[in-house]
Design a binder for these strands. Structure first.
Lengths: 173, 173
DNA sequence: AGATTAAATGTTACATTATAACATTTGAGC
DNA sequence: GCTCAAATGTTATAATGTAACATTTAATCT
């Protein structure tokens, strides 16, 4: 299981996003194969659409965008695919946006924090072990048994905060 | 500004919830007075309804429950009151539930974590400074400028996990 | 007190997000 | 090729949330 690492928080301007997508899809294929679950065409297409950017995508946007490929698609079509992808840890639901984002750590641990930029709307995922350790400590101290942990931070990403010339496109992206 | 502290995570069985409510409403009144904003009857009623338990409440449940008091109430009535209460830091939106909970630290700092019990559905709020410090560190390291931070943990609370006799009612509550 | 005016609320209509329930098709394993 | 569970198709509706404009309320000024 390789890790689709991302050096830049801004895919459109600074990284080869086609590679980003193909790595994610490749990882997804291997994860599903290993687990004996089926990455069907619909599921694969939904995952690919989600990975088409590093922005969180809404379910009904996915529905619109999958219709050229799957004219029969209905809300349930999309939500079922999303449920599957979440269950397999291939995407995350961004709770504070009612939207979905590709998981950068598929097949690995699943405690992460999401940094959501209000300006470019891109979402960066971090494993942030120190934070998770502190959180686990606090939870344990209270004798709470955690099943899932969500950390979402809204603000302005480093790229968008930069006042530098030549960042204009990135900000507007 | 006093702090409505809560010694037990389970209000129904172990704490005087009437006092809990009156403290929350008292604090809210003082906070609004201080800030020169108006805690109108509708806003007060919505806040009181939210504090009627330590469970997160849905907007449309609030609507149903406020109708006997405000027969004219419509969705906008409730959502406007909720917007106001959130803006003043008197309640929190639980993103992962699309629901709302009274804030236990009104008028104070506003970085907290929410522990949401799947069994009794109560929500405990903690300020968890170590976690917040670690999170601030991670965010700063990435040069991200945070505007808001959401930490929500789902699981089983200490009370509900206890196998002890005489906790049956608490679990079922 | 009466006038002014911004804030709050009333009201209608609709947009967005999500699920239930049942029918049909597909595909893996026998 | 049969069988059965999984996946998808299909219809309908539930649940959540907002936009836009009208009316009322209440604080402030004169």
């Amino acid at each position: 299981m390789n890790i689709p690492t991302r050096t830049s928080p801004n895919p459109s301007s600074e990284h080869n996003h086609k590679q980003c997508i193909s790595e994610a899809l490749g990882t997804a294929g291997r994860v599903c194969m290993t687990r004996g679950v089926r990455l069907t065409p619909i599921r694969h297409q939904v995952l690919e659409l989600i990975w088409s950017s590093h922005k969180a995508v809404k379910a009904y946007d996915l529905l619109d965008r999958i219709k050229p490929l799957q004219p029969m698609a209905k809300p349930a079509t999309v939500y079922r695919a999303l449920d599957f992808l979440i269950e397999q840890g291939l995407i995350h639901r961004v709770e504070s946006l009612n939207a979905f984002i590709g998981c950068s750590y598929s097949g690995q641990q699943h405690e992460q924090l999401l940094l959501i930029c209000k300006r470019c709307h891109e979402v960066e995922e971090r494993s942030a072990e120190k934070v998770m350790k502190a959180l686990a400590g606090e939870i344990g101290r209270l004798a709470f048994i955690a099943h899932s942990k969500t950390i979402e931070v809204h603000g302005i990403c480093a790229k968008c905060a930069e006042p530098a010339i030549n960042q204009t496109d990135a900000r507007l992206n």
